[in-house]
Simulated scan of single mutants.
Amino acid sequence: MKLRLHFVVDPMGWLCISMVFGIWLYNTFFVPKLVLFPHYNEGHIPWAIVVCYYIASGLCLAALFRASTADPGRLPVDPHIPHAEREHWELCNKCNLMRPKRSHHCSRCGHCVRRMDHHCPWINNCVGEDNHWLFLQLCFYAQVLSLFTLVLDFCQYYYFQPLTGLDQEKFTTRHELALLRISALMGVVMFGGMTSLFYTQMTGILSDMTTIEKMAHFSNEIYGAKKSWQWALAEVCGTRWKLLWLIPLRSRQPLNASHQFRSHV
């Protein structure tokens, strides 16, 4: 597997993605230190909960890294246009380069992106044909991690048994309530925002409409017949194997639309 890195030089984007990474780092450090490890050491929770939290955290970070560094589908300066597809290409009036239809020019990145959905400052990258599936994964795993964090913060005060082996002089022990309140606040904000974004992205994928096309009031009738939800997601993720839809550390290959979708487990 060969993963090519793609970076966008944008100070504002670097600030936004640093904030997202900071929220992830805060919860990944304080939630295990204040909740998971103390209750595991005293036998209140099984090891599986600790492992599941770190798996969710790791997948969220992997999806963030891949979505922010993957090439969204940037068009080369001198693209090779097959003779049979020339009627489906057009000239960009901003960079004066040929591009396939449904491509758009990103003013922040300064180039055209195939089937561009939008430019997301929170990943400092465009969301296009080649990394849309990674952005969808990021929204999903951010929801899972945020909900997991909220449940643990709630259980710390209303469900778990009181801890007996705490050192009252430690900073985390003396400021536990404030630290967990901050964690819960970030969890609510992230869960609400990611749920709304995930729903928006899913409806766009299933209707075969990008965010830019929705804003421009394009009709999806010009792009062909309506696709099944399985084929629509398989086309975005680059594989018909459903289990691979959730794995960020892999490469994506375009599917041949002439093949019918077959369900895989």
Rank of each mutant, 00 (worst) to 15 (best):
N256R: 11
A84L: 10
V35I: 15
K101H: 05
C16H: 05
L150P: 02
G43N: 05
L34Y: 04
M12P: 01
H104I: 05
C112T: 03
L145W: 02
G128S: 06
A70Q: 03
L3I: 15
L179P: 00
H6I: 08
Q137P: 06
S146G: 12
T28L: 13
G43A: 09
V127D: 00
L136R: 08
P76Q: 04
V35A: 04
F7R: 09
T173H: 04
V188S: 01
F198Q: 03
I222R: 06
T28A: 15
T164R: 06
C52V: 14
R108D: 10
L243H: 08
W89I: 03
C112N: 02
L25F: 14
M190L: 12
M19W: 09
T200F: 08
K226G: 06
Y199I: 15
R174L: 12
H44K: 07
W24P: 01
T172I: 14
L246E: 01
T172K: 00
C120R: 00
T172E: 11
Q168N: 12
F7E: 08
Y159R: 08
D153V: 14
I49C: 05
A67V: 15
H104E: 07
K101Q: 07
L163K: 01
G73Y: 04
H104K: 05
M1W: 07
S103F: 04
G73E: 04
R250W: 10
H119V: 11
C109N: 01
S57D: 08
S68K: 01
Q156T: 09
H217Q: 13
D117A: 12
M98W: 06
P79N: 04
S103H: 02
G224A: 11
H88A: 09
N96K: 06
E221K: 15
C95R: 00
S219W: 03
P38M: 09
C126N: 00
I222S: 07
S207M: 11
V265L: 15
F198W: 08
K242G: 05
R114I: 11
A216M: 14
M215W: 06
E213V: 14
R250L: 13
W89S: 02
L5R: 04
A216E: 15
P38W: 02
R102D: 04
V127C: 06
S68M: 05
F261G: 03
I23C: 09
P100Y: 02
Y141D: 03
A234H: 03
A56F: 10
T203L: 10
L5S: 12
Y54H: 14
L147T: 05
R99P: 01
F29C: 13
L61V: 07
A142H: 00
G13I: 10
H83N: 10
R4M: 12
F140H: 02
S107C: 07
G238C: 10
A84H: 11
P82C: 07
Y141G: 04
W133T: 02
P32H: 02
I17Y: 00
L34H: 01
W14P: 02
L246T: 03
E176M: 14
G204Y: 01
L147N: 01
G238E: 08
P11D: 12
H80N: 09
R114S: 12
C60R: 02
Q253P: 03
K214H: 07
Y40A: 11
S258V: 12
F7C: 11
K170P: 01
R115D: 13
V188L: 13
P162Q: 06
S258N: 14
N41G: 07
R240W: 13
A142M: 11
W24G: 02
Y158I: 09
R250H: 06
F191W: 08
L91F: 06
L166A: 11
